[in-house]
Structure formats: C-alpha cells, structure tokens
Amino acid sequence: MSGARIQVDGRTVYVGTGSGHPDPGAESVVFVHGAGMDHTVWALPARHFARQGLRVAAVDLPGHGRSEGPPLDRIDTLAVWLGEVLDALAIPTAAVVGHSMGSLVAYRFASRMPDRCRALALLGTSAPMPVTDPLLNAAKDNHHAAIDMANTWSHSTGTLGSNANPGVWMLGVGERLLERSAPGVFHADLTACNTFDAKSAGAKIQCPVLVVAGDDDMMTPARAGLDVAQALPDARVVRLEGCGHAMLNERPNEVLDALIGVVPT
C-alpha cells in the first residue's frame, strides 16, 4: 500500500509509506511537507528510502491531503502533533526531513525532542519565516491569487518549460496541489510560518543537520538557510544553483542525492 491511516487525538492521519515493506527493526525517516502541500511532494525520496528498506513516514499534516482537519496554525503545535504521530506509529527515533513550513516543524521537533531525532534535513528553510501581507491576506480570503503568488514565487524562472519528469507541467503540479487545500488551510499554514519564533528555536539540536538552499529561492532566500546552518553545531549546506523554493519539484534528483548523504540507513 502507498500509505497508512492512523488515529491521533481521535482524528484520522494519513502517513505515506513510499509503498515500502520495512523489516520490524528498520530505521525510520519522516517527511514533513510545506504550506498547502501534502505527502505527494515526497514521492521520489519516500519511494527511494522505502526501497532501501527504511521505514518511511511522509505525513499529511492535519487538514492536508488525506488527514482530517482542522489545520494547526502554530509551528510549536505542529511539532507536538508530529511527536504524537510518531508515538502512534511506534517510531522512537527517526531522521526528520522537512520542506519550507515543514522544515520549521522538523526544526522545532528536533529541538523539543533531540533524543528522537537522529538526523535533520531542512529544505528551503528560514528562521524566522516571515510571510508578506498580500499573500497572507489573499490566503485569508481563500483567493486564488494566494495560490498564484505562492506558486510563482516558489519556482525559479530558469526552469520554465522543463521538468525532470518529462511532460509534466512544472508550475501546474504546485498549483493543482495548492488548489486541493480546503478553505482556511493555506492561511493557517502561512500564519504558522509567520508567527514562528526563531529565538533559541534550534537550541539542543545536536544531531547532524543538512540544509538544502536554492540559490534562486525567493520565498526562503539561500542566505536565510545559511544562517540557520550557522547557528547549529553540526550542519552541512548543499546549495542548488539556479533552483527556486519548490526544489522537490525543480531538482528532485539533486535533493535526493543530498538527502542520501544525511539520512542514516
């Protein structure tokens, strides 16, 4: 099966497994998607690590994809929720990978529960992660302009018309995914990003950290990612030249290569 449905706080949570069949003692890798997205953004790395025998948990955050709502609009709440999901899945420790808003959830989770995090990968990250008012307001009104803004700014101009998956419309994939969000979900996500308190957010993180930064990222500029890495004791940075914020869409293979270097197998 592609995923599993579990109950957390009386609500259904969907967890993508990358269609793996891991052995009982297998190491785990957890994926946390960004604002308005769902587990499908991780299709390539989830399936890769599942094939390597890892236990994959690509969560749909509350109100996203196949998980029941309501959405949670604070990073701290999401980090606590992630811990509960791992409890429910009986995953004691894991490598945690997050993209964009998901990188903050992973970051906060690793800081709150450092002993549960074996490695951390932060893709397209920034701490803090302020969101511009026009985007927040459009999302609040559930206006399509929010999707257009976020999606356009998430892609570098250099990738227009090309896709590592030939024939797949680069911008269309992001747009369709955002359009699937229920009303209010995208705004809750952006609020979570915007209210994230970066002060001492990374304290206690001792595990190896990978930061992947796109040089053409307009949402979380590469500079911000480098700052996050600099504040951590054991962080490595992979920069993707000419890549925008939607790096899983623009450079799936290079992101996977970087993850292979940090996810323990």
Partner: peptide, 18 residues
Amino acid sequence: DLVFAEEFGPQAFIVRAR
C-alpha cells in the same frame, strides 16, 4: 501494490500513463 492516486496526488494519471 502502489496506489497511484495516493502516492502521486494530482499527478496520479500522468505518472501512470508515462
């Protein structure tokens, strides 16, 4: 036992077709 709609979301059909 892959479920295309679950694994690939909006890309379910195009991924399977390709």
